[in-house]
Amino acid sequence: MKKKNKSDGTSLNSILIRKPIKRCFPIFILPTLLAFSVGFVWPFIQGIYLSFCKFTIVSDAKWVGFSNYKKAFMDASFKHAFWYTALFAIASILFINVIAFFVAYALTQKIPGSNLYRTVFFMPNLIGGIVLGYIWSMIFDGILSKYGTFLTAKASYGFWGLLILMCWQQVGYMMIIYIAGLQGVSEDMMEAAKIDGANRWQTLFRVTIPNVMPSITICIFLTLTNSFKLFDQNLALTGGMPTLFGDDGTMINSTEMLALNIYKTFYTSAKSRGIAQAKAVVFFILVAVMALIQLRFTRKKEVQQ
């Protein structure tokens, strides 16, 4: 729709088809719009409202103003969860994208059986997070027990464990996006690079990567938001354990990420539900802002073809 069409046969045809469709667009978006409003917009608005309330169940809330936000910002476990999540996000963006890109690169090099490999690498993505978390916790505990230790013995085990899990699950998905990008790089350009005497690395960094920048943008966006929103895997793998006890009397679950922290706060008591809701709103703003900054940043690097 964006491009102004030149008057060749196909575009003329598409205009003829599009016109009536354009006119009745409300009918076509209605089902999705309704589902979106009921399933997303309304709960979102209600969620913001509840962050200013004290409540036990959501349909029965009392207005308390900004006190929930004050308490949320004073909570040491929330701060810890934020930095832990940020660290995890950086690590997972790096690992997942680098691995996914190279797997995609390898699988577009006309290796026999590459379709089979693509399928196999994609499969973990089809398993639910909770199930994966429990399975991997068994695998890790099985391995670590050989060394007389276990997954929740140290915070670092939980961190790397979660990273391995997420890589295993997400590399396949990102790989598919990278493959689509890599296949879009025109043969002519590659050939031209070859003729100009560029070696493999130069071709990769000077030609291929700039041309798959749109894929990189989308993949970084997905990994960033996925790591920030991560919940199931976190809950099932370590559940936030081990707990650290500060000398000042604070109690922090060392591998607890933001979403899990919000969830646990919610079920602390009737008084804490509003606080959890306030944390959730802060959480939303955070993820949204970060994702927008990232989009703007990587978009700049995209090349126009």
């Binding site: 007389g148 276990f150 929740t152 013995a153 559940g239 354990m241 707990t243 679950n253 079920y267 602390t268």
Partner: peptide, 22 residues
């Protein structure tokens, strides 16, 4: 107070103590 969270902390500490030489 906050039964589940308190118990989680105790379990975590017991794990450290019993199985990780804590």
């Amino acid at each position: 107070p906050n039964v589940d969270a308190w118990r989680e902390g105790v379990v975590s500490a017991l794990q450290q103590y019993s199985a990780a030489g804590g």
